[in-house]
Design a protein around this nucleic acid. Sequence first.
DNA 1: AGGTTTCGATTGACAAGTCAGTCAATCATT
DNA 2: AATGATTGACTGACTTGTCAATCGAAACCT
Lengths: 217, 217
Amino acid sequence: MSAVRTRSAPQDRRQAILDAAVRVFARRGFHACRVSDIADEAGVAYGLVYHYFGSKDSVLDTLFLERWNVMLDMIAEVDATEASAREKLYAIASFIVDSYRHDPDLMKVIIVDVTRAANSFGQTHLARIREAYRRIAAIVEGAQRQGAFKAEIDAEFAAMAFYGAIEQMLTGWIFEMLPADEEHYERAKRLVVETICGGLEISGASHGRRDADRDGD
Amino acid sequence: MSAVRTRSAPQDRRQAILDAAVRVFARRGFHACRVSDIADEAGVAYGLVYHYFGSKDSVLDTLFLERWNVMLDMIAEVDATEASAREKLYAIASFIVDSYRHDPDLMKVIIVDVTRAANSFGQTHLARIREAYRRIAAIVEGAQRQGAFKAEIDAEFAAMAFYGAIEQMLTGWIFEMLPADEEHYERAKRLVVETICGGLEISGASHGRRDADRDGD
DNA sequence: AGGTTTCGATTGACAAGTCAGTCAATCATT
DNA sequence: AATGATTGACTGACTTGTCAATCGAAACCT
């Protein structure tokens, strides 16, 4: 124990408020819950929330930005490796799915409450979200230059389709439309990459034709 | 003209309120706008909104259900045809994209305020949304039985990836992350189907292996 | 060691404002 | 006159953000 007894360290209180916010936001949604709910859940006085955060919005901002920035860093890091585009995309899918596995409430809040309010909040969030698409698109572009991915599919589109597919999986888990267990998490990672890359990669035959009729090679 | 002059037909007023609601919901979001905003936009008195609708939520419910049911019918109709799975999925993508082209405000409201907030409303919406996934999954299953789609990818997962990719395109247009013009709408339809089916269909070679090495068949 | 000052952390009652929903009255049409 | 549509002021409930007061720990002094 470090600074225990009657009062805990300031940063613990701040973190306790953030943790409590994740729980109540996930439970009833950002709009439906009150600042007093956060304070009650964290076991602190109402006013303390305003001591650490400028507003209720600011609490949500902090939750989103802290997590999103970790993801942006992760994407940049992965892209810097020598792995194939497929492996890079698998790493991203893994990261997002594992984020959900590790803290489903936080991911629920980010997907349900932040994305929804992305336009009513400042443009800040929108810019960060867009940045993620851009970095994924950069991976696709790299693969296109190397001839591994079809060049005729716009990289920006592909990135959004990829991210959209992943987000829909999480949505399925969040709203209990899909079974959410360890096995399905792993299957989801593989499915998303297999589905998207199977369509993006230039395979030996069948460039995108509907029928599986083999041509004269 | 039928019942014109000083007072228009009741159903016109009701529709005027719905149309106004779409506009104000799209502009500032469902939660951020007041019932008085709807009434003002529609040019009717505050109380009239409550004459036609039981609550503010009920207005949103109506907007969502009326449109969503049209889509559900459309999917069932398409699935009953003899078209290939790829053509069926293209028809669905077309319908959704065209819905956005025809009434972007309404689609924005449905995606931003309903689809992503489905848990805060009753289970009614969730069930309708799930029904859409189920119908798309049925198309995938049909293709799997016919040997046109890979059997090892869960149909439910595939359906969600497909819908998620489309919804992400709309999100891109809604938040002005993607160029929204006629040409891009058409490209988006093709991209989504090409991306998803390219990965789902059993092509002559490369069953899902990363490398395009041809096996001895 | 004991007393005291300082200052950020913490409290919770309160002011000020918001908004959904109600309802009694009015209007138009038949 | 009867019926249903329409009005908009009003109520009641609820919320955010403020703020003056209090607390606790450490530094500072004697």
